[in-house]
Design a protein around this nucleic acid. Structure first.
Lengths: 207, 207
DNA sequence: TATGTTTACGGTACCGATCCGTTAATGAAT
DNA sequence: ATTCATTAACGGATCGGTACCGTAAACATA
């Protein structure tokens, strides 16, 4: 939609820094005020740019915000995991601190809430959020479950989809609750969920 | 906020049907367009009422929508349960069809999504939704878990809060997913979740 | 019964603010 | 000189909220 396609090389070229400034501003305002509350002129103003400069690049707000979301890494997907870890338990313990930090970030709850709010009225935005913030969580959980089945800590007959929903859903649901979560609580909470799902040993031995 | 408190008894009394019409219109528009998209004049128009008639009763849109939400039974809390049921399994089987019907209603997803979207920008609305749509689910789940512990199907040491989050969270998360759910799938899904939590026997014998 | 007072009601108009999308003028790079 | 990016300004629309009008419904008093 940035119309990058067949733009001729004549005349004054567009400033790539302007693209980024607009995308950043759009994401910030979306997180702060939602898709409806973020106006095009507010986005332009925060980007330090004229309104037409935005309209030349994106024809609709929905598309702009969706691309702004897509231009970010989802924070949870970006955890480098040491694949040589032997057991699922080790793998989980390796992931928990970073995951706890990610879900505790104030912005995480904000993006999640605004995204879900967009579901009804802005499907395109919902779609972008889902792909970049939710699916990575699902995939990580699915990997862990697959390993756990190999190890025998999770029974092979279990309903995988439901189990993933329970893990991811619990985290999302907990994050959205009015009572916030600090980093230490988040770690404890994540371990509790993993344990209940069979990805950590039942013994509450650590901590 | 309806200022019902010290209103003198002289003059023409307010029409209670008008209150209901406004609340219904507000809820409908909130579900359709969200808290920002629902304008006061649209609410008044749909209620077949002058704008002032709305402002006479509610001083702000946030308060009106919050009360509109509070004026609805949460659909899930209203299931009469036969407390004489012997086992948790019977209890769950008794609840599943109604719960499946409730979470499959198109309005359920809409309210949920709009509510969560309001979390960031309209705390008062979030609060009302939480109390009327989420807490009943939690309490029902907690009751079932308590029974299950007595029966021994759920280990006493389990993290109740996390387990409830997983059950409620899974349902919410599943309902919000782009792919909708029909009644039969919802029943199967609910059983899967209950089973994974230990509230139904592992054998997939029924159905 | 008849009259007056009080409040609710629907409808219209208005205010300042904000939004969107476009147009006109200016500036930069070729 | 040409071509495009950019900013500033504009017009139409809508928002939340208020003010006013004429009317309808309940009360009080006579």
């Amino acid at each position: 939609m940035t119309a990058e396609g067949a733009r001729p090389q004549r005349g004054r070229p567009r400033d790539p820094a302007t693209d980024r400034a607009i995308l950043d501003a759009a994401l910030e305002l979306f997180v702060e005020k939602g898709a409806d509350g973020a106006s095009m002129q507010a986005i332009a103003a925060r980007a330090g740019v004229g309104k037409l400069t935005v309209y030349r690049r994106w024809s609709s707000k929905e598309e702009l915000i969706a691309q702004a979301i897509e231009s970010t890494r989802g924070d949870l997907a970006a955890q480098p995991v040491d694949d040589t870890a032997a057991t699922v338990t080790e793998l989980v313990e390796q992931v928990v601190p970073a995951a706890a930090a990610a879900i505790t970030r104030p912005g995480f709850r904000a993006v999640l809430a605004q995204m879900l709010g967009s579901a009804q009225t802005h499907p395109r935005i919902m779609e972008a959020c889902w792909e970049h913030y939710i699916l990575p969580q699902r995939e990580a959980a699915a990997d862990l479950l697959a390993r756990a089945v190999e190890e025998g800590t999770v029974e092979a007959g279990a309903d995988f989809d439901a189990l993933i929903d329970m893990m991811v859903g619990a985290v999302i649901y907990r994050v959205l609750q009015p009572v916030p979560l600090d980093a230490a609580e988040a770690e404890r909470y994540l371990r509790s969920v993993y344990r209940q799902a069979g990805l950590l040993p039942a013994a509450p031995g650590r901590g």
